[in-house]
Amino acid sequence: MRAISGLWRWRRNPLRRTTDLVEAWVALVAVLLILVVGPVSGALVGGVAQDALQRSVREQRESRHLVTATVVRKLDRSPLDADPEAASGRDVRSRVLADWTAPDGTAHHGTVIASLQKPRPGDHFTIWTDQHGRMVARPLDSATAATHAVLAGFGAALLTAGLVEGGRRLMVWRMVRRRYARWDQAWDRAGPDWGRTGTGS
């Protein structure tokens, strides 16, 4: 990391400027913030995300139900469906007209996507529905929720490190601009005759 390269400026050196020392301190503070605040922010964000996602997992498990549907008849393939030759053998899905009973006891009839290779009338398959029999997506599982929480925490730690490094670079850039401005002023004071023979005599 470039921040560490500024630490050499602490050495005793007659050419060392005050800005060199300030830049070294800024580098040290940036390294400490990245090593301490980055992991802490990642852990906090990951913990909050884990709690929220696991709560969502529990709510989805309570509100979504796996019910058995019965094929009435197979429907023609939709033009929006994937090419059957491009689909993998284990992910075969068919559009069918099916009947199913909701958890509240109501009967339903409609078009669904069945995970059957060659559906025939009377075949059974499972679908996810809400309490009233409306089709819903599969509920989130705990492992996937935990993975998302870890990724959120890792992203927060990286974002914190990026912000700290960006702040350090901005401070160094401003110090360098100020240093160049002072050099320009010094050259202006020296005048156009600086370095010529007989100047100042």
Rank of each mutant, 00 (worst) to 15 (best):
Q131M: 04
G153R: 02
A157E: 05
T160Q: 01
A145H: 10
G110Y: 10
W128A: 09
F154M: 12
T106C: 01
M135L: 15
T126H: 03
M135F: 03
A146I: 08
D130P: 09
K118F: 01
I113M: 12
T106W: 00
R134H: 09
A149Q: 11
T160V: 11
S142C: 07
D123N: 14
F125Q: 11
R134P: 00
A146G: 12
G153T: 07
T144F: 07
K118T: 11
V136I: 06
L140I: 15
T160W: 03
I127D: 00
A146Q: 13
P139Y: 03
T144G: 06
T111E: 14
F125N: 03
W128D: 11
W128S: 09
H132F: 07
P139E: 01
L159T: 05
G155I: 06
T129Y: 04
G155A: 15
V112K: 00
R138S: 06
W128N: 10
T144P: 01
H148K: 09
V150S: 08
G122I: 14
T160G: 00
F125H: 07
P119Y: 05
V150K: 09
Q131N: 08
D99N: 14
R138G: 01
H132G: 12
H132C: 02
R134Y: 03
D99F: 11
H148W: 14
T126S: 13
T106S: 13
A137V: 14
G105S: 14
A114I: 14
P103R: 08
A152V: 05
D104R: 10
L158Q: 03
G122N: 08
G110T: 14
H124G: 08
H108L: 07
T126E: 15
F125K: 07
S115F: 07
R134W: 01
V136C: 05
H132M: 03
H124Q: 15
K118N: 13
G122H: 10
T111C: 02
P103M: 05
A137N: 13
M135Y: 04
V112T: 13
G110W: 07
R138E: 13
H109F: 12
T129I: 12
T160P: 00
R138L: 03
Q117F: 02
T126A: 14
A145Q: 07
H108M: 07
S115K: 05
V150F: 08
G155H: 06
R120D: 07
T106P: 03
D99P: 02
A145I: 14
H124Y: 05
T147N: 10
T160M: 09
P119T: 12
A114D: 11
F125L: 12
A152Y: 10
L116S: 02
R134C: 00
A157H: 02
A107Q: 14
V150I: 06
H124T: 15
Q117S: 06
D141Q: 06
R134S: 09
L140H: 06
P119V: 11
A156K: 05
T126F: 01
G122D: 10
Q131V: 09
W100I: 02
D104G: 08
K118L: 02
A143P: 06
G105W: 14
L116R: 00
S115I: 00
D141E: 13
V112A: 13
P103K: 03
S115E: 12
T111G: 05
